[in-house]
Design a protein around this nucleic acid. Structure first.
Length: 583
RNA sequence: GCGCGAGUAGCUCAAUUGGAUAGAGCGCUAGCCUCCGGAGCUAGAGGUUAAGGGUUCGACCCCCUUCUCGCGUACCA
């Protein structure tokens, strides 16, 4: 918003100051990290001066002369250091921005002129297996990226590429036919299917006859055997019930769930086409793509058809890619998966470029690190099993319930339960989004449920405190605060804590933009945490409703509180956290 | 071997992508409740950013070398 206007003015002034430079470097404006220097800074003039072989400070002063539109924006500029331009917002600019923010439900976010279509591929659990702790990051990250892009005005298509096809179904089918415990299936379908798989898998390792029997079941399924197809569909259906339950608890939705099996009838054509175009070739009985002119992939060919004639995940991913582009015509496709699949996606993207070179689409692999236990090894139960997602979420709610009951024993149990749900699930999700996604992080209950520090409980608490002000206001005046009636001229911010808070609010849009560009929700997490901190400081020092506050100040501070609550709520919801009115 | 990551305060993590004095929380020390929710706030101590070199007005960030750890490296996804 305002920063964009300043940036536009700066670009205009640079062009006016150096009319004959044809290749200008990117002129950008960013919030000052150190506010003593100003509110926004642009260091890029130094680079420009270097390119033009000019003295940076001289160039800066030439640009400043051309910055004639700043006065209308209530912004001051000064040259500092080796040639920085520092912009300082005058109180009028801040009042204007806050007043404007009060009247919109998307404060400080500029609607997109030309929305992009973005396909987001995330979560992708396997059929007939329990969702486990390893699915959290992809699910939580992907869903968050989807919300960030939607908030910015892009069109998002989320697609859950579930693992509903593959060699495991031979073993599952054999187990289902021989060993199925109907009662167990009704009580715990996933557990029973998992048991069947493990049993046949173990048996087939001992006995080649079992392995062969499983293979025959798989072939029958692939050939469209009626009975096997029926069982297979049942397994998917039972699994989907589990997925839906987990997604409901995590607050995640998908536009499509097109699993691997959906692409079955396209796979043969993909391989055929790749071979015909000379991209794939026969090698050791399989069909593979080689990357001779790519130093990184040189020694890593990708198999697109196995020796036994079956396809693998590379083939499916290529078919999926083709389908998505044909049907959805996206500008960008984002895959959210584990970092261990980096090589795979490099191969897929590279093959795809050779295969469909003319397609204009950005392909992006957003990868993340591993969740570790306190021992620094991948997070497991004490006995070494993977942790089921449902158990993890249960524990989160239980732990949160204990804390809520301790802090607020008088609240009715149903209310406490709901608070525990929001805080517990929120804590898990927030802890997952907070670290830079590319690093591994250590899972720690005490840390994520702490009331201090960069945690979900702290942020949710900050929000409830603000909401409490508005409840009190309504109680004492009889009318609710009406943000639509906030007028710029009546706002007056002079206290340092007010100004710091207001200016930080104003950078919400920039932060969202950056989180989207880098696919890094932790940027948003840190922003919200800082915002909460600035609010807490303001709250200590600047009373709102106390009796000795004059009406003008009170009104200004109410507007500030309202905007803070708005940004906090939108920010938290974008991360995937529900908010609470009290806790 | 090659490739991709990571190495920042005692611990767990940030750092607006090359910007001004590297920031938080925990832990430690010292303060703050006659009034808006103390699940809070204000200070202090704590750093040769793994090591060494280079590039430049400026480097945690880019380049080179070395060390440590994790992951990947043709028919699992």
């Amino acid at each position: 918003m305002l920063h964009l206007l300043i940036e536009a003015e700066l670009k205009r002034a640079v062009r006016a100051a150096v009319p004959d430079a044809d290749d200008l470097p990117q002129i950008t404006l960013m919030p000052c990290r150190d506010t003593r220097f100003g509110d926004y800074q642009s260091p890029c003039l130094i680079a420009l001066a270097k390119a033009l072989k000019q003295n940076p400070r001289e160039l800066a002063s030439q640009v400043v002369e051309k910055l004639t539109g700043l006065e209308a924006l209530h912004v001051q500029v000064e040259i500092a250091g080796p040639g920085f331009l520092n912009f300082k917002l005058l109180p009028e600019a801040i009042s204007g921005a806050i007043a404007q923010a009060c009247k919109t439900n998307k404060p400080f976010i500029l609607p997109r002129e030309n929305p992009e279509t973005i396909v987001l591929d995330f979560s992708s659990p396997n059929v007939a297996k329990p969702m486990h702790v390893g699915h959290i990051r992809s699910t939580v990250l992907g869903a968050c990226l989807a919300r960030i892009h939607r908030l910015l005005g892009n069109k998002v298509i989320s697609d859950n590429h579930i693992g509903d096809w593959g060699t495991q179904f031979g073993k599952l089918l054999l187990g289902w036919k021989q060993e199925l415990d109907q009662q167990a299936l009704e009580q715990d379908p996933i557990g029973e299917m998992e048991r069947l798989y493990k049993k046949v898998n173990a048996a087939s390792e001992q006995d080649p006859v079992v392995l062969e029997a499983a293979r025959r079941e798989l072939v029958k399924l692939q050939d469209g055997d009626k009975e096997n197809l029926e069982i297979w569909r049942k397994m998917i259906q039972l699994s989907q019930i589990q997925f839906d339950e987990m997604y409901h608890r995590l607050g995640v939705q998908f536009d499509y769930t097109l699993g691997e099996s959906f692409y079955n009838d396209r796979l043969k054509d993909v391989v055929k086409d790749l071979v015909e175009k000379g991209i794939a070739c026969e090698s050791e009985g399989a069909y593979a793509v080689f990357f001779d002119d790519d130093p990184e992939l040189k020694d890593h060919p990708a198999i697109v058809q196995k020796r036994d004639g079956a396809s693998n995940y590379a083939t499916t991913d290529l078919a999926t890619l083709e389908y998505r582009i044909e049907n959805w015509k996206p500008n960008c496709i984002i895959y959210v998966t584990d970092g261990r699949q980096q090589l795979h996606f490099k191969q897929i993207f590279s093959i795809f470029r050779r295969w469909k070179g003319e397609v204009n689409v950005q392909l992006s692999h957003v990868w993340f690190g591993t969740i570790l236990g306190s021992d620094g090894k991948p997070f497991k139960t004490r006995s070494g099993e993977t942790i089921k997602l449902s158990d993890l979420l249960d524990e989160a709610e239980e732990r949160a319930m204990k804390v809520v009951t301790e802090k607020n024993p008088t609240l009715p149990e149903a209310v406490r339960k709901n608070i525990a749900r929001v805080v517990g699930i929120g804590a898990v999700k927030y802890a997952d989004l907070l670290p830079n996604r590319q690093s591994d992080y250590m899972f720690n209950w005490d840390k994520m449920l702490a009331f201090n520090g960069n945690t979900a409980p702290y942020l949710l608490y900050a929000y409830t405190r603000i909401r409490s002000i508005f409840r009190k206001y309504k109680e004492s005046t009889g009318t609710a605060f009406d943000p639509m009636k906030v007028e710029e001229k009546q706002l007056n911010f002079s206290q340092p804590k007010e100004l710091t808070l207001a200016k930080h609010l104003m950078s919400f849009g920039i932060v969202l933009q950056q989180a989207a560009e880098d696919s890094k929700p932790n940027i948003l997490c840190n922003y919200i945490y800082e915002l909460s901190g600035f609010f807490a400081s303001f709250y200590e020092e600047c009373p709102v409703l106390k009796s000795d506050v004059d009406p003008e100040t009170r009104n200004s501070r109410l507007a500030l509180c309202y905007t803070t609550a708005q940004v906090l709520r939108i920010g938290l919801q974008t991360l995937g956290l529900e908010t609470l009115e009290e806790m």
